[in-house]
Design a protein around this nucleic acid. Sequence first.
RNA 1: GGAGAGGUGGCCGAGUGGUCGAAGGCGCACGCUUGGAAAGCGUGUAAACGGGGAACCGUUUCGAGGGUUCGAAUCCCUUCCUCUCCGCCA
Length: 427
Amino acid sequence: MHDIKIIRDNPAAFDAGLALRALEPQSDRLIELDGQRREALGRQQDAETQRNALSKQIGAAKAKGDDDEFNRLRAEVDRLKGVLEEAGEQAAHFSEVLNQHLAAIPNLPFTDVPVGKEECDNQEVRRWGEPVELGFTARDHVDLGETLGQMDFGGAAAMSGARFVSLKGGLARLERALAQFMLDLHTGEHGYTEVSPPYMVRDEAMFGTGQLPKFADDLFRTTDGRWLIPTAEVPLTNLARDAIHPEASLPMRMTAYTPCFRSEAGSAGRDTRGMIRLHQFQKVEMVSLVAPQDSAAELDRMTGCAEKVMQLLELPYRVMMLCTGDMGFSARRTFDLEVWLPSQGCYREISSCSDCGDFQARRMSARYRAEGEKRPAYLHTLNGSGVAVGRALLAVMENYQREDGSIAIPEVLRPYMGGMDRLEASK
RNA sequence: GGAGAGGUGGCCGAGUGGUCGAAGGCGCACGCUUGGAAAGCGUGUAAACGGGGAACCGUUUCGAGGGUUCGAAUCCCUUCCUCUCCGCCA
């Protein structure tokens, strides 16, 4: 959510920011609405001032038993009522329209974000690791999983439809091992506190992180009007909502392992094979809440935490800075981690780390009070996958596959696999 | 699911139609006092929005939304949340 006062102070900069997102200028319209809102608000407040003064006199007259004065003042207040209602309605109307407009505008990109329209304009920042030389034709994770007899798309489709999967045996355990490894890393080494949050939330929470009002189509909704979380970013970030946090409590770093539910409306036909794009997948998420001056450094730190996961798993990856056109609604700067997939011969997204500035904090009124400051200020929010467990699973499968169809277990996961060093076909 | 009781400032807690943004207490901050500390005394201690360079001024806010009224923390309706008892249940 944008601050109308900032737009008012520098409309040209705001429109320039929108242009980076390939959006039309809006400052004129917004400032006009704000002017109408303030004009009406001023009239309303003047009328209220008069009414309050008169009401106090009425109280005094009543106390003195002066009926004439009492009735005279009452009539006077009566006349004010019309003004008050009319101005009040207008103020509320303009305020609502203004807020609707503001709520639908995405965050503006940070100055160093590459300008571009789509994925191919993203900027590679660095690479880590070399794509493995298998020495045989790489099979994809579907092929591998089904050969193992531990990955069942047909069974899942029969009960749930397309874009679901059922894992069993070693693969199910591997998924759990990955999650536990990531959580232990982030809580033990990276200073994140583990949280087990709700998976269903209200409208306000989805508005707070920016999924609503624009992206309802991407979400699943329960019959009683709640939403299934599309990422743990939603509940973790909203833990800070509607509060003023002491500066000493920052940075707040939280991590959670949760399922994520996405309708994948609009992605029909894309990634229909395998575990890349499902309606339900597991993810370890990181969320940081920091003072404004710390958010830029925190994004680098958070991206590093996600990279650490990849390095310990020895999965080759590259870091991309997303271009202005490819960033999510709430982000002002985003680094994606892309993992090498031998079967596709390319890098695919496995983590996305975003600095949202005060964009989400303003939407959910998450503030902090700096030491010695009288006025509270909005804190900055960041979120990142650390990393997507489902995609990590398939990345491990494909990168650690052997010619006989078995899959080696990465060193760091073996303690979580009961010492097992490979996955072989179920009997 | 049934029956009942509640939601007031950072916290506790008074307040059932009229100078109530709200007594009192605790906490916190500053000052006085003290050799120093404690105690004591004094002063201060919410947020949002609007106006102003600022000091400051105005409006709103007693869970939230709506209504009654000249005037609502106080009355009515809706809703959210908490607690107690019963039922059910992992």
